[in-house]
């Protein structure tokens, strides 16, 4: 079940991504309508994070291309925001909560330009939105996991983008933070923004998202939540990897050639 849309805000075309010559995503091809709140769902090792890293241009592609707003990423960077996994950074870094939120303004302000009072007020607003303004001067090493996640969201909000990619924003956060985050995502959606969220709790997926991408090293389904979250498709996603794909990938890696000429 792969439903394509006209005038997509994201087009992923025949995307293959490999680590050390071994494909971890095979020929992924889907489109996402504007204004959707999208859940990218699949088992561990399905390539969910790899997919959004590839779309954000952080990984080399073995094949295919992606377009955002019908353009190349480089032309629309200021309209796109990325929230990496919380564990991907060292929170012992010498910085305050406000410092991190301000980082969301660096790209918008441009290389080697100074941060302005306007940037500070935007960063403050972003912290307010995630209820972290009272911690603005707190050293980031003293935050709880949920608070760290909120700070990462504030940094993304400060970019004032139209399209958001979030890598596991619900991982390891408390129930209150999860609730606050989903409220925030729904509010962003109501403002016409598009949000893609890597998620792996099936229980809440139906409730949180209106569009689902099912992934397990290949695309299983992409479409409206009601049509995608069916027992058959879920079985196909979680029923184990296709062993032929995995075996061919292993061979390609051990010989040291890619799967493409």
């Amino acid at each position: 079940m792969i439903q394509h849309v006209d005038n997509p805000i994201i087009e992923v075309h025949d995307l293959t991504v490999s680590y050390d010559k071994k494909p971890v995503l095979w020929n992924v091809d889907f489109t996402i309508p504007a204004g959707a709140l999208v859940g990218i769902i699949g088992p561990n090792g399905a390539g969910k994070s790899t997919l959004i890293k590839a779309v954000m241009g952080l990984l080399p592609l073995s094949s295919g291309y992606t377009e955002l707003f019908g353009q190349k990423l480089n032309d629309v960077r200021k309209r796109v925001s990325y929230v990496p996994q919380r564990e991907s950074v060292d929170w012992d870094f010498p910085a305050s909560v406000m410092d991190i939120a301000l980082m969301g303004r660096y790209g918008q302000r441009g290389l080697f330009n100074r941060i302005t009072a306007e940037d500070r007020s935007i960063a403050r607003q972003a912290l307010e939105q995630v209820h972290m303004l009272e911690f603005a001067n707190r050293q980031i090493g003293q935050l709880s996991g949920g608070q760290q996640q909120r700070v990462f969201l504030a940094r993304a909000l400060a970019q004032q983008a139209d399209l958001y990619f979030m890598d596991e924003p619900f991982a390891g956060v408390d129930a209150a933070t999860e609730g606050a985050i989903i409220e925030l995502l729904k509010e962003l959606k109501s403002q016409g923004k598009t949000i893609l969220v890597v998620h792996h709790d099936l229980q809440s997926a139906a409730e949180y998202f209106d569009w689902i991408v099912l992934l397990n090293t290949r695309l299983v389904a992409s479409g409206p939540v009601k049509e995608v979250l069916t027992p058959t498709l879920l079985q196909e996603t979680y029923g184990g990897k296709l062993s032929l794909l995995a075996q061919v990938g292993d061979i390609a890696s051990s010989i040291g050639v890619g799967t493409r000429e």
């Binding site: 480089n74 950074v89 790209g107």
Partner: peptide, 19 residues
């Protein structure tokens, strides 16, 4: 500010188009 972001979160810096 660029070096600060680079030292803290390289992936995010790259996503913002910082070289």
């Amino acid at each position: 500010k660029e070096f600060k972001l680079l030292a803290f979160d390289k992936g995010y810096a790259q996503s913002q188009g910082i070289p």
